[in-house]
Design a protein around this nucleic acid. Structure first.
Lengths: 248, 248
DNA sequence: GGCAATGTGTGACCGAGATCACAGGGGCAA
DNA sequence: TTGCCCCTGTGATCTCGGTCACACATTGCC
């Protein structure tokens, strides 16, 4: 039986539990984390913490907006799919980001679906309570606007990636370079990026099939631009990848 | 010589001048129009009205965010282009919408460029003044969040249109249906939609070339789905267009 | 009038990438 | 071990739509 008030250290799926917004280590990074003490207290009181395994669906396309989801730890993707089964991922969300925010604000159905990519700790906030919260705290509304601006810019970046790139090779190069810029760590031979997506998932990011992703990655490897070794991808020649972005 | 305080009725480019937020006929529709009287007064004092001809560029991709532009009348497009000259329009903005808002909020360069499609009356608000304004008026921040949510949903819809449609035919059908839903007026034979884009501009909306747009429109016309007569397009069989969305 | 600029229609060709088919190969549980 | 499932690699083929080329219409301007 859990002792009330005591924060457990090991949660489901082997996650380290964060538990409270007040003691969260993420407080520097997350958009909703840097708030005034009162706002943070109120936020902490209306949030409901839960844990999801990999592959859990937080909400689906077309569902009316129950509320929003704060990704305290883990990763998730926002995706859409056509009726014929073609799927595309519109954005990857990292910890600290908020999912479903725009739908709650606009009062419209979620336009995309959200799915966890790894085990995640998620805080759920019901829509009506969040709207009440935001109306009471002017600083929160501005934070919300900032987060939505970031989301909008990422959405446009994705649309530009999809439509403006001359071919699939450029799209894949750009994706890999973005990984490098985002989470790459310097290594003796180049940038090292953790890498655990399947070719199919990569394809859903750049609107290409599994087979072409396979062929292009082999091509990059053959040309010495990258090296792939279980769980990580090594960017040996980011400069060469960059030249692929524009040339046909 | 203009008489001070007297609102002119005919402006440049044959536009009817709106002139003041307080007397604007748009006050029902625009996001920034339904505000408290004090907020509206302050907004009216920091805005600067100007008029642009067709094809004027309000800001370009990569420019640091001087401020935001309220589209009082007219239409504009948000577009991006690659260095090789390929262009794509990401969104059409109608009167009442705000351009550049997300960049001012986020303090990041405009990620797209904005260009007027017809002569427009535009209110410019410098970024710093707008940020001061928004911090003083909690209700405005919420409006901003609502507008950004709308923009985000439209951006995702555009990305889905581009990536999920099985072919160019489906993309064009979807675009035409969207026109019909947005600004179509019932006519004896079907929905009548004003239509003054070139095939090339249509192509930039659906990521296709001028030639394929020509071929597809001819195809739709031959099959009796639409009729095109100078300045308007008549949707004769929207149901048939809808069947094209999914089938290959 | 001529003439340039711009938008449109159409055919011929071709190439990137989707699709289909099949062969490994690694992890995992029974 | 066997079997199953999922991921991966690779060849053969097909097809949509891009590219090129050219004819024609319309408009506006000198």
């Amino acid at each position: 039986m859990p002792i009330p008030g005591l924060v457990k250290l090991a949660g489901p799926y082997g996650l380290k539990v964060i538990g409270s917004c007040l003691t969260c280590v993420m407080r520097e990074e997350g958009i909703f984390c840097r708030l005034s003490p009162e706002a943070l207290h109120e936020l902490n009181s209306i949030r409901r913490s839960s844990f999801y395994p990999q592959g859990a669906v937080l909400f689906v396309d077309g569902e009316s907006p129950r509320g929003l989801f704060i990704l305290c730890s883990g990763q998730a993707k926002l995706a859409a799919s056509s009726r014929e089964g073609k799927a595309i991922t519109l954005r990857q969300a990292e910890r600290g980001e908020v999912l479903g925010l725009s739908s709650v604000i606009a009062g419209e159905p979620y336009p995309v679906m959200a799915e966890t990519l790894v085990p995640c700790e998620v805080n759920f906030i019901p829509g009506p309570e969040f709207l009440r919260f935001i109306r009471n705290h002017a600083d929160v509304a501005l934070r919300v606007a900032e987060h939505l601006s970031m989301e909008l810019h990422k959405a446009w970046a994705q649309a530009k990636l999809l439509a403006l790139a001359p071919n699939a090779r450029a799209k894949l190069a750009q994706l890999i370079l973005a990984w490098g810029a985002g989470q790459g760590k310097p290594a003796p031979e180049g940038l090292r990026v953790p890498f655990n997506m399947t070719r199919e998932e990569i394809g859903e990011n750049i609107d290409a099939t599994r087979e072409t992703v396979t062929r292009l990655l082999s091509d990059f490897r053959r040309r010495g631009f990258i090296r792939i070794k279980g769980g990580a991808i090594l960017l040996l020649r980011p400069d060469c990848l960059r030249t692929l972005l524009e040339q046909d």
